[in-house]
Amino acid sequence: MVESTPLPSAAIQERQVFGISPLIRLTLLLLYLALMGPLPFLAQATRAAVSPLWLTVGIGLGGLGLYGALSQRVEVDDQRIQVTYPTWIRWLFRGGWQLPWRQVQALKPRSTGQGGIVYYFVGEGGEAYLLPMRVAGFARLVTLVETYSGIDTQDVRPLAQPWMYFILLGFTLLLLLVDAWTITTALGMT
């Protein structure tokens, strides 16, 4: 059960910003590096048809796109909830969305293919807006949603628990060690 804490009246009036959890950002960026980092070195060692330089450029652009996606933020004030991205990457992610609180009709759960549950805001016209669940301060965000929309959010839980990302981070760090060995071996072959 998510406990609803009363919000001070000053906090209700100002805009609150929630970014993606630093643990999630770090884990996913390191996982991307662990999966993609060795490829240019392996391409060079095996004399692959794809240039290591082009692989490096492509991996760099992909990493920049991932960093942009992980820069998503949720902005909440007494008028609306808004999901947005930094200006430099907004063109790629269609700029996010915003929904005035007066248009929120419901918060509906939907099951995912992996057995989890995500939640969608339903607007006046029946449009669905995904509630971001991987933000730092998710419990506070849910409290604000309940305060501004009047919708009962006691059953809303985060999609993934922090321990899941700690386990993924641990395996990612192990993979980075294997990558270091792989890159060293590939460089020794050239």
Score class of each variant (00 low, 15 high):
Trp163Arg: 15
Ile117Ser: 08
Asp152Ala: 08
Gly95Asn: 06
Thr143Tyr: 09
Val74Lys: 00
Gln161Leu: 12
Gly126Val: 02
Arg90Lys: 14
Tyr85Gly: 04
Phe93Lys: 04
Glu146Thr: 05
Trp88Pro: 06
Ala128Arg: 12
Met164Tyr: 10
Pro109Lys: 06
Leu99Asp: 01
Lys108Glu: 13
Ala106Met: 05
Leu159Trp: 05
Arg102Ile: 14
Gln154Ile: 12
Arg90His: 15
Gln72Glu: 15
Asp152Asn: 13
Tyr85Glu: 07
Phe121Trp: 01
Gly68Thr: 09
Gln82Ala: 08
Leu107Ile: 05
Asp77Glu: 10
Thr143Gly: 13
Leu159Gln: 07
Trp163Val: 10
Leu144Asp: 00
Thr112Asp: 05
Asp155Ser: 14
Pro158Asn: 13
Pro100Asn: 13
Tyr119Gln: 04
Arg134Gly: 11
Arg102Leu: 10
Val135Leu: 12
Tyr119Cys: 02
Thr153His: 03
Arg94Pro: 07
Ser71Arg: 08
Gly125Asn: 12
Trp163Lys: 10
Tyr129His: 02
Asp155Tyr: 13
Leu70Asn: 01
Ala106Gly: 06
Gly116Leu: 05
Phe93Ala: 05
Trp163Glu: 10
Gly123Cys: 04
Arg110Ile: 15
Gly125Glu: 06
Gln72Tyr: 14
Thr112Tyr: 08
Tyr148Thr: 00
Glu75Trp: 00
Tyr148Phe: 09
Tyr165Met: 07
Pro158Met: 12
Phe121Cys: 01
Gly123Ile: 01
Val76Leu: 04
Glu124Phe: 06
Ile167Thr: 09
Arg157Asn: 10
Tyr119Ile: 00
Phe93Tyr: 12
Arg80Phe: 04
Arg134Cys: 10
Leu169Gly: 03
Val104Phe: 00
Asp152Lys: 06
Gln79Gly: 11
Gly170Glu: 11
Tyr148Glu: 00
Glu75Ala: 07
Leu70His: 01
Ala128Glu: 09
Gly115Ala: 07
Trp97Pro: 00
Gln98Ala: 11
Val142Pro: 02
Leu141Glu: 03
Trp97Leu: 05
Ala139Gln: 12
Leu130Trp: 10
Ser111His: 14
Ile117Lys: 15
Gly113Trp: 04
Arg94Ile: 12
Ala139Lys: 13
Gly68Phe: 06
Ile151Met: 04
Met133Tyr: 13
Ala69Gly: 12
Thr87Cys: 15
Asp77Met: 08
Val74Asn: 01
Asp77His: 06
Ala128Asp: 10
Leu169Gln: 04
Leu159Lys: 06
